[in-house]
Nucleic acid binder design. Structure first.
Lengths: 327, 327
DNA sequence: GTGAAAGCGCTAACAC
DNA sequence: GTGTTAGCGCTTTCAC
C-alpha cells in the first residue's frame, strides 16, 4: 500500500503539503499541488480510511444487526439501507444474530468497537436491561420493526393499524370467519416480539370492532389445524397471516388438501415480499414501502449522528394493502 | 469511549502493562493483571479495533461486492457468507454495485482503502482491464458465479454441467421441445455474463446430445412469445429457465393464460431459491448447496489471505436437481 | 507557501 | 515485572 508519506518522500515535500494538495486545503501553490496530485494518481494512492478515522473520529460506517436474511423482507430492507447509506457517503458493516439474544449483544459490542458512527438494528433483545446496554454503547442507534423502549428511536410501519386494516378489508369482502396465523408461541417471552404483538393486537382490535370472534392459529406444525379450521362451515373464511412466510405455507397446505383459494378459503399475507405476485393465486398482502422505511430509518440515524435535538422517538411510515386475488 | 490509556492511568500502571493484562501476554504479576482486568471490565473497556488494525495490519474484515439483493439467491449466499466469516472471526463490509460497472470499481476501491483483508465479489466487470484492476488492488480476491479470468480464483457450481443435467432430466421425462428462457440480450457484451453463458452452453450441449432443436427465448417482455412457443403442438413441451426468477415469471404467464403446469407445459427453474416449494405447482429447480458454496468461497479466500501456495483457481461445488412437480 | 511535530488508540521491541 | 518508546497512516496546529 502506498501512503501519504511515500508521496511526500517522492515529491520531496512535507506531509502537511501533501495533505493540502490531496484534501484541497488552502496554502499551497498551484505548481506543487499539481505535482503531488499527478504523482499520487500515477501511484494509485488511496487514503487509508481507518487511519483517517482514527484521527478525525468519523468513520463513515454504519453497523447493522439483523437476525438473518432468510425472510426476503429483510434482504429487501438491507438492500435499501445500503443504497440510502451510499447516497450519503456511508457504508455498512453487516452482522447477523441468528435469533440469538446473546449473539446480538456480541454483534453490537463488536460494531461499536470497530468503531462505527451509528447502528441500525432489528432487535431481538428487549426490556430495561437491553435498553441500558444500548445506552452504554454510546453510539446513535435506531431500531427497526421491533420496539425496545421509549428512549430508543424506532422506525416502522404502524403494524397494529395495518393489521386492523387487513381485518376491515377482509370484512369488507364479506369474510366472517377470519383466522389469524402467527408464529409459534415458543418465542414469546424470550424474544422481542413487538411487531408480532402489534400485529396481533391489530387483529384482535379489528375483530372486536367488526363484532367477530377471533380465532388464532400458532402451532409449529399447523397443517391439521389449518385444515380443520378452514373446513367449509357456510361462513366465508379467510386465513390472515402475520407474515408472508406463513401465507405461503398456508397456501401450500390448502393446495395440497385440494382447497381452492380464494373460492373455498381466502389467504392474506403481510410484508409483500417480491414473490407474492407469482404464487397461485397471487397473494394479497400489506406492502411496506421498504425504500421509504429504509430512508426514514437512515435519516433518523443521521439526525442522531449529527446531534440534532428532538429527534422523534417513533417514526411510522406508510403501508397499503396490495390487492391481488387470494381473497 | 474508554481507552487503554484511561485504564493505565486509573490503575497507575504503564500502557505496556495494560496490554500484557488485556492480551494475555507474559511478564505480568497475577495481582496487577487481575486489577487491570477488573477495572477494564467495570468501565466496559473495548479495544479500538481500527487502531489495533492500524498497528497490526490485520483487519478481520472481508469486503463483499454484490450487485443487489433483489434475487433472493444472493441474499441467501450473503447470509451464509456472514455466518462462515463469523465462525472464523471475520466480519463483512457489504457494498452493492446495482449492476453498474463503474460503481463496482468504486466499491472495490473503497473497500481496499478501508482497508479489508480480502474481497468476495460477484463481478459484473470482466476482461483483461478488470483483471489488471483487481491485481492492482493487491488484496486477496475471490469471485463467485461470474468468472473473470484464469488468474482470479473462482468458486461456483458447474453451471454448464448443471444445465446440461437439466436437459437430460427433461429428456428423461419425455420432453421433446425444450425452450430455454434466459435474460434479455441487452446485458451481453456490457456485463460479465459468464454464469449466464455457461448455463446457455450447457443447454445447447445437452440439446445437441439429445438430438433436439434448441429454441431460445430472451425477450424483455416474453409473454406473447412464451404463449406462442408453448402452444400445444403434440410434442411434450417444457420451458427451462436460466434462473428461478424467470421460472416464476413463466409460471405466472402460463397460469394467466390458462395453461396447466405440468400437464400442458413443464417449467423448470435454476438456483432453487427458498420459495419454490410454495408456488403452484411447486417448481423443480437446481439446488446449489449455498452453505457449501459460501464455505468453499470463504475457505479459498482464507487460504489466499494466509498466503498459502497453490490455491486452486477454480473450485466447483455440487449441485443437484430438486424434483418437485412442475415438470 | 511550506515544514515540523503532535496525537488518534493500539502493539511490540527494548530497557531496566 | 514493569515502564518507555516508536510507529501504524492520517490530520491539524503552529512556527517560519
Amino acid at each position: 500500500m502506498i501512503t501519504s508519506k511515500d508521496i511526500s518522500r517522492i515529491c520531496g515535500v512535507s506531509l502537511g503539503t501533501v495533505d493540502r494538495a490531496l484534501n484541497g486545503r488552502p496554502g499551497i501553490s498551484q505548481k506543487t499541488k499539481e505535482k503531488i496530485l499527478k504523482v499520487s494518481r500515477e501511484l494509485g494512492y488511496r487514503p487509508h480510511l481507518a487511519a483517517r478515522s482514527l484521527k478525525t473520529g468519523k468513520n463513515w460506517t454504519i453497523g447493522v444487526v439483523l437476525f438473518d436474511l432468510d425472510n426476503h423482507y429483510f434482504a429487501q430492507v438491507l438492500n435499501s439501507l445500503v443504497l440510502c447509506a451510499h447516497e450519503e457517503g456511508y457504508f455498512l458493516h453487516l452482522t447477523l444474530s441468528e435469533h440469538k439474544a446473546e449473539r446480538e449483544l456480541e454483534c453490537l459490542h463488536h460494531l461499536v468497537s470497530l468503531p462505527v458512527d451509528g447502528l441500525i438494528i432489528f432487535p431481538i433483545n428487549k426490556g430495561a436491561e437491553f435498553t441500558r446496554f444500548t445506552r452504554l454503547l454510546n453510539v446513535p442507534l435506531v431500531t427497526l420493526g421491533n420496539r425496545v423502549s421509549a428512549s430508543i428511536p424506532f422506525v416502522s410501519i404502524d403494524d397494529k393499524l395495518a393489521m386492523g386494516n387487513c381485518v376491515d378489508y377482509l370484512v369488507g369482502k364479506g369474510y366472517r370467519r377470519i383466522i389469524y396465523f402467527s408464529p409459534p408461541l415458543v418465542y414469546r417471552g424470550k424474544e422481542n416480539t413487538y411487531a408480532v404483538s402489534e400485529r396481533y393486537m391489530g387483529y384482535r382490535h379489528g375483530m372486536k370492532l367488526a363484532g367477530l370472534e377471533p380465532v388464532v392459529l400458532n402451532e409449529k406444525h399447523p397443517k391439521s389445524k389449518i385444515l380443520e379450521l378452514t373446513k367449509t362451515t357456510g361462513e366465508k373464511t379467510a386465513v390472515l397471516c402475520s407474515s408472508d412466510i406463513y401465507a405461503l405455507e398456508t397456501l401450500s397446505i390448502l393446495r395440497e388438501a385440494g382447497a381452492r383459494v380464494p373460492e373455498d378459503v381466502g389467504v392474506m399475507g403481510f410484508d409483500d415480499i417480491d414473490f407474492l405476485a407469482h404464487t397461485s393465486p397471487p397473494l394479497s398482502s400489506v406492502s411496506q414501502n421498504i425504500d421509504l422505511l429504509a430512508r426514514t430509518c437512515f435519516n433518523v440515524l443521521k439526525d442522531l449522528m449529527e446531534g440534532k435535538p428532538d429527534v422523534p422517538q417513533v417514526t411510522l411510515t406508510d403501508h397499503r394493502i396490495v390487492q391481488r386475488s387470494s381473497v
